[in-house]
Design a binder for these strands. Sequence first.
DNA 1: TACAGTTACCGAACCGGTTCAGCACGCGAG
DNA 2: CTCGCGTGCTGAACCGGTTCGGTAACTGTA
Lengths: 344, 344
Amino acid sequence: MKRPTITDVARRAGVAKGTVSYALNGQPGVSEETRRRILAVAEELGWRPNPAARALSGSGSQVIGMVLARPAMLLGVEPFLMRLTSGIELELSRSGFALMLKVVGDLDEEMAIYRKWASERRVDGLLILDLRVQDPRLELVEQLGLPATVMGDPRRHAGLSVARKDETAAMTSVVEYLAALGHRRIVHVAGQREFLHIRQRGRAFGATLRRLGITGTARTVYADYTLERAAEITRGLLAEASPPTALIYDNDVMAVAGAGVAREMGVDVPGELSIVAWDDSPLCQFAYPPLTAVSVDVVEYGRAATELLIGVIGGGPAGEVTAEPARLIPRGTTARAKDAPGRA
Amino acid sequence: MKRPTITDVARRAGVAKGTVSYALNGQPGVSEETRRRILAVAEELGWRPNPAARALSGSGSQVIGMVLARPAMLLGVEPFLMRLTSGIELELSRSGFALMLKVVGDLDEEMAIYRKWASERRVDGLLILDLRVQDPRLELVEQLGLPATVMGDPRRHAGLSVARKDETAAMTSVVEYLAALGHRRIVHVAGQREFLHIRQRGRAFGATLRRLGITGTARTVYADYTLERAAEITRGLLAEASPPTALIYDNDVMAVAGAGVAREMGVDVPGELSIVAWDDSPLCQFAYPPLTAVSVDVVEYGRAATELLIGVIGGGPAGEVTAEPARLIPRGTTARAKDAPGRA
DNA sequence: TACAGTTACCGAACCGGTTCAGCACGCGAG
DNA sequence: CTCGCGTGCTGAACCGGTTCGGTAACTGTA
């Protein structure tokens, strides 16, 4: 009834343990015939490797780790994460790796987990999310010697792999789109300013406006990703003497909340106010009116990042990938600005 | 530079490996003085246990597993999952366990993972989600001998722990609430009929209606949790000759989609149509109008289920917990039925 | 004082793999 | 025929813990 070990296979096949190990791992030093026989016996006995034993004798644990450092309240509202996870799993399944997930409250706890995992050899590599502007994790991880893929676009990345996403190009296209609709008073209701990708969007937002010669009301306001703040900010903006005619929200749920506030205040969307949501999701499609959204193939992004990581764990060099450019999907929340000058 | 092992600690403390092991695990057979000395040395050297070594010599892996069998499309739209995970982590952190997460496409793959994990001793226990009406997983898991907590309310549970949630009481209170508002034409737009909790809600829905003497239009319609179906169904219902005056959705995102459809069709919410969402979330609060919702403390539910599991892994008997009763939180999407008879 | 029982510790086996040194054998070259 | 070398396999050490049998020293009892 007990699970067969490599010793059982060896005995049954009439060879030494070591030989079985070589055969099962496709290493040289075993004749083709013996290898076939060993594989047949292993199959027959239903042998499965014991990851603990493997991990103990130097091989990795076949596990990659991912830590989410977000207040519990914020976790639920992000479809992004689950879709990313789907993508990660896609790649993990092919390579037989498993995913260790940890949810913590802040960056310090996250780094404590990295230290723990490293010292316990719990994971072979890390996926690093939610890059900060000055991110202490990169240095730590490099110092710990753990392979990692950084998801985002860091300036310095200390020999780690990077899965980039071009926030700048995406934001530029959004602003250009709104500008082409005649919007001049545009506000970017952003997520937490600590996040690098948010900062990058903010910069691109400002830069594009300047390039297009749009000045004045246009600005970025940081909302820390909570819906409370997003609603509050939107309320404030719409109550201004000369309110914005277009709002860009850094995620879909904030956008829904924002649209709600507009409606509550009697501001017509998209008649008087255009809204763009970042990160398209089913919610965007089925809200009313359906939200114009910036769509990124998050699943593929997660998959590619994981592929990169597995490559490094396998001994390859650190690499880079860049996610496919985001696409702006116009739906029902964007329209020509009410006060737009007629087409030139 | 290498990480200290138990042997290093033993040498440094001048005792045998075995003694160190006993001391570090708080087992008897070591004098108080020696124990203190060993602990001091371990601390000084920064010793950390190697989980692989522990797992290899009989102890568990200190990991619990959770498999999500849902089509990738459905994953993103469920705040429920992330909040549940927060609760799970709460308990795992105290006990030093880690969470292994796997996302698969269907129940067969899920069971394959269970077999794999069991044979590889990857996990010490399982959290089983999304209970089906006839759920083949329960038997499998019992057969594999893996401790598990079943989240839901199964008829038979084969010696496994159960974390119950009283769907019946919750649904009953929702129906009573709507009935008290004068609603007679109520439809329950349900999730997938395969899920046991959905079925339980459906039954409770019907039973309560019968008890209250409400018959006719009232019924449950299964929407499979996709927003497409939910929107489509809502559209169909509202187009009927005698459309429902109240809709109960099995999750918050379907409810938002439903409210959108109503608006699109010119049906006033809550004037002409009341809407209740299951699983309260920030989205419910900040949608407009804010959604009346059934609120469950999902975080605590996850925590309690995990506590139960850890108990069983620690050798305790299988147990049961029941989540705190759901609370109905009236917000802006429910009102007195338009055609309600005056108060008696 | 002799003996049994306890306490505190030692030493070794063991978990299930990986890896390396070494050995036997066969084959081609000289 | 002998030497040298590559091939194919063996046996053992090793990874870092846990656990168990054994034993020396100490304690209590008759």
